[in-house]
Design a protein around this nucleic acid. Structure first.
Lengths: 339, 339
DNA sequence: GCACAAAGCTCAATCGATGAAGCAAAAATT
DNA sequence: AATTTTTGCTTCATCGATTGAGCTTTGTGC
């Protein structure tokens, strides 16, 4: 390709020399303000053509340094290993671009240190907004943003220093539990108390889902067994370990199960397969999350799909119209119809 | 939080005033060159403390404008909706950070226009390297980068203008096919020619996988049916449609199947379930890709996992040591042991 | 033919961080 | 005591794009 060319990047000064004009004319032509600045369309065309030929790309660093608005919008996200976060990132990028914003996304692997580090890096990039998705400590991030004049916003997990957009975890979990219980009744003749597996007891979403889980049991007069609420963490290994330990202690596990995420479901499925515990009488399952393959695993696994497009619509609505820091928007999740 | 403060960002000039010193002293303290510049550790400490207190974050735009190296490394990726690309992005970010680089990733949804647009944006951000992952036209991207002095690199799908790191698709597909054929023999008594589903006929990987598919058939003297090679595209709907059309034409589909990606597998599974075609005698399957739930779908679905850590190790090796544009590194994929 | 306006530009300051060059004071050497 | 060296800073030009404030030239009106 290149035989050792200097490879210095073309600047507006280079283009100005080539066009026999000034850098300021070039700049205004390339950023679209040339009509306002009364540049002839003749010159505009010439400059545009030259820029094209030279493969000119504006130096964002220089441009942003001068402008007052960066139009950069940052997002931090814990993992890319499931459909929920994948879809959040994909939708976020598309919606940001539609609005003329430049999305920057970074993944923090649920590491609180990395989370702060990433947030600081985002500030350095002069983001105008920072969306903390599923952050372990969204409030610390908001505190970092506040004094810098950067607006922040929480997604998936709520915080108290910035507006939050989350799923309606309580109602979603209650409805999911109702459905699992109904399936139990249908398949086993009666509805017995379910097992709850996955999630961190300390996080808001897990708390709300457990509340919904309890509410649905209460509605039909079934008592929840407190030892059967395993908020053991999200990781597959955690769920696997928790089930193993419970089976060890109690011998037989419940026939119905509420799994708190596809991540945990991965561990649950692995354990069921390896331990052979449910041999011949597969448990009735539900999962607060969705995955196309998981949905096919069993005929009657109920899945709740968090409504990512609606959640991000709410996010951009806040970005456009503003909202007080204590705003909390809860988006109803969607029940996946099977077939 | 804020009661309407000015919220202007703290600059080194503000810190200089607060510390009663000069901006250049502040700068050198904060970027670590202060020893070389003989700033007293007393002053260094004072400045560091003030920066901490004020929540100072360097303005990357200004800093990068001045430096000659940006240390930014860009990656474009087609989708976030599967484990393969998810794991590529996650590993890429982690490895880049380990090396003191700043990763920027963006998703182009297999849209050739968006791909070029994203590449141009990356150039504007002054990336030093651009990794095109699974790009529809990696060579056009390399052509854009070359004159700007930005080095480019292809991942997953090869190009001819920049070094490429890909899976060993031929050997992987041949071994996968062998295994599916062996499973057929074991389950059905004999090995019959398989069906190939998914992928674009025009892309290098699909071509190589078809070649491996043929080779494995040839080894055992089975003739491939040309009508049973359905390179219909990756999208689930495409795979679904192709299977439906084939069933329409031929009535009965082969008992063994090679699916070209988990994306296509999604459609295949959906079709199998909806059509009821394989009722009672599930097909023997293999998939060139891995997903934890897909792996659990059937007892004997063979999955090849592309070796993402090795692929990215090769990528960073090239970045550190260099490589001619015609380099092509093929990483053997890994066979997932079942259980 | 002169005043005045509009068109079509250019000039130069600016954004914040960086680092080469320079300068004054303190310390060491002769 | 005079000179040199070292220490510990500051000054200022610079990176590339942007934009308010000019400054010519051409056009219009009377």
């Amino acid at each position: 390709m290149d035989g050792g060319k200097p490879a210095r990047k073309t600047t507006i000064y280079d283009l100005a020399t080539l066009a026999g004009t000034s850098a300021s004319a070039v700049s205004s032509v390339l950023n679209g303000t040339w009509k306002k600045r009364r540049i002839s369309s003749q010159l505009a065309e010439k400059i545009t053509r030259l820029a094209q030929e030279q493969g000119y790309a504006v130096n964002m660093q220089a441009s942003l340094l001068r402008r007052e608005k960066s139009k950069i919008i940052g997002m931090i996200v814990p993992k890319y290993d499931n459909r929920y976060f994948g879809s959040i990132v994909e939708t976020f990028e598309a919606m940001a671009r539609e609005r003329g914003l430049f999305p920057i996304v970074t993944c923090t692997r649920r590491d609180p240190e990395l989370e702060m580090e990433a947030a600081r890096t985002m500030l350095s990039y002069q983001v105008e907004w920072l969306i903390s998705t599923g952050a372990t400590n969204p409030d610390r991030i908001s505190e970092l943003c506040g004094p810098a004049g950067v607006r922040s916003l929480n997604l998936d997990l709520p915080g108290s220093n910035a507006p939050s957009v989350i799923s309606d975890n309580f109602a979603g979990a209650r409805e999911l539990t109702r459905r699992i219980l109904a399936n139990c009744r249908q398949r086993l003749g009666q509805a017995l108390p379910l097992l709850f597996v996955g999630g961190r007891g300390s996080d808001h979403n897990t708390g709300e889902r457990i509340r919904g889980f309890r509410a649905a049991h209460e509605e039909v007069g079934i008592e929840v067994d407190e030892n059967h609420i395993l908020a053991c963490g999200y990781a597959p290994e955690k769920a696997e370990g928790a089930l193993g330990a419970l089976a060890q202690r109690e011998g037989v596990l419940p026939q119905g199960m509420f799994v708190n995420s596809t991540i945990s479901l991965e561990g649950v499925m692995r354990w069921i397969r390896r331990s052979g515990h449910y041999e011949g009488r597969a448990p009735v399952m539900g999962c607060f999350d969705w995955d196309p393959f998981a949905a096919l695993l069993a005929d009657d696994i109920e899945m709740v799909r968090q409504d990512v497009p609606q959640m991000l619509a709410a996010v951009f609505d806040i970005i456009e119209k503003g909202a007080p820091p204590n705003t909390r928007i809860e988006i109803p999740p969607v029940f996946v119809t099977r077939g």
